[in-house]
Amino acid sequence: MEHVELQGLSIVLVGAFNPAIFNPNWLAAQSVIKADEAADATVEVVHREIAQFTVGDLIFEITQDKFSLHTAAEPFVKGADVVMEIFGVALPHTPINAMGINYMAHFRVQSRKQQTALGRALAPVEPWGEWGAKVAQTETSTGGMTSLTMMQVEPGDRVAGNIAVTVQPSHRLQPPGTGVYVQINDHYEAGPDASVNFPELCVAKITPSLERSRQIVDSLSTYARSL
């Protein structure tokens, strides 16, 4: 974790939502947030098709088929409490059929050479033949992997879903070439016949999800820095 310089968490629910009712005052009325937090909130838009606003460290974005809660500030586990307050208590009958607990991190590597070495290890140029050699031999800049996603299709701890990990060069960490971006999408679905209480699931899964995600980031970071 010591090399992670930026991180964030998103909880995304897929279902049927009414964006028009979501606003900071409504959240305060439901005791999800405090009245002074609602007063200090920044509202971008509240419309029947989309609502977007920021309360403290939490960014809310709601469309008719998706509820998203983003935060870059610890404690990330607070997100599960907010989801439970909204969809477990205030709006328990909201139809939800999928959920993502997504963790994002930018970690630092020691050099562009190390960043490239990680890219080569994850996506070697040899299988690409002649063109792959040209990718590797560019003189003025370094070509190679720009994005790679690995997916675990049956994690075994959910009715349905998957865990997808995407690795990219970081565009946030400066100078260029010294950072790696990792996004873990921990995806849960209800399945064809099963009904799932997603707020409860969120409460139960957020800590193990966060822990697993950090293990993955830590593995990649440690490996990259060994190259």
Partner: peptide, 11 residues
């Protein structure tokens, strides 16, 4: 150092 007590706990 931050402390955060969870409002909702696993079942």
């Amino acid at each position: 150092t931050f402390f955060y007590f969870r409002r909702y706990l696993p079942g």
